[in-house]
Simulated scan of single mutants.
Amino acid sequence: MFDDKKSLIRDLFERNHRAMLRYFTRKVGREAAPDLLHDAFVRVLRRDQLEAIADPPALLQKIALNLVRDFMRKRRTEIAHLRPRELLDDAPSQETAPEDRLEYERQSRLLDAAVDLLPPRCREVFELSMENMTVGQIAARLGVSDRMVRKHLAHAMRVCRAALD
């Protein structure tokens, strides 16, 4: 029984891995595509009674679609939480109380000083994110991976939050 499943999965992999890798690359980028391809086949391996499935390639396609959806949902969540928007309030208007304007200016100076202390690449990533560029856009512009952009943003956010606390 195990040999049947093993040969079925090997055949499924040999027939579909190139097309799936292209699909994942198109949907999530070159960096994450191999991991999702691996995850897809791991999910197939974990299926009980794989031999009873009428259309294994269709199952693989459904798994791939779900993996891409999960990946994109996770990416949106990460980006939303890594965005520095919550660190900066809108500039106070002339009607704002003077002490509130002073507090805003104090926090702005603290934030500027914290950003100035960031390593150059980290600062560049942070500043590009402030221009509403996505992680993917920043990665493409700087020639680094999405993961590295997220690491830089996470570090910048920790430094900025610490400066404001």
Rank of each mutant, 00 (worst) to 15 (best):
M1P: 09
F2S: 09
K5Y: 03
S7R: 14
L8F: 03
I9E: 01
I9G: 01
I9L: 02
D11I: 08
F13E: 06
F13C: 04
E14K: 14
R15W: 09
R18Q: 14
A19S: 15
M20Q: 10
R22C: 13
R22M: 14
R22N: 15
Y23T: 09
K27T: 12
V28C: 02
G29H: 04
R30D: 11
R30C: 12
R30W: 10
E31W: 07
D35G: 06
H38F: 12
H38N: 12
F41M: 01
F41P: 07
V44C: 04
L45M: 06
L45N: 03
R46I: 08
R47E: 06
Q49R: 13
L50R: 00
L50D: 01
E51Q: 10
E51T: 04
E51W: 13
E51N: 10
A52Q: 13
A52I: 07
A52D: 11
A54N: 12
A54Q: 13
D55G: 08
P57S: 01
P57I: 02
L60C: 02
Q61I: 11
Q61W: 11
Q61A: 14
Q61F: 09
K62P: 09
I63N: 02
A64I: 04
A64G: 09
N66G: 05
L67C: 06
L67R: 04
M72R: 08
R73Q: 05
K74A: 05
K74Q: 13
R75K: 14
R75H: 12
T77L: 14
T77C: 11
E78H: 06
E78Q: 08
A80I: 11
R83H: 15
L87E: 01
D89H: 15
S93L: 14
P98Y: 01
E99Q: 08
D100K: 15
D100W: 14
R101V: 11
L102F: 14
E103H: 11
Y104N: 04
E105C: 08
R106I: 05
Q107R: 15
R109Q: 15
R109M: 13
D112F: 12
D112M: 09
A114N: 00
A114E: 02
V115P: 08
V115K: 02
L117W: 07
L117R: 07
P120D: 02
R121S: 07
C122F: 04
R123D: 01
E124C: 03
L128I: 04
N132F: 10
N132M: 13
N132A: 10
M133R: 05
T134H: 01
T134C: 11
V135A: 05
G136L: 08
I138N: 02
I138A: 03
A140T: 13
R141G: 06
S145K: 03
V149H: 01
R150M: 05
R150E: 05
K151P: 09
A154K: 03
H155F: 06
V159I: 00
R161V: 08
A163W: 01
A163Y: 01
L164I: 00
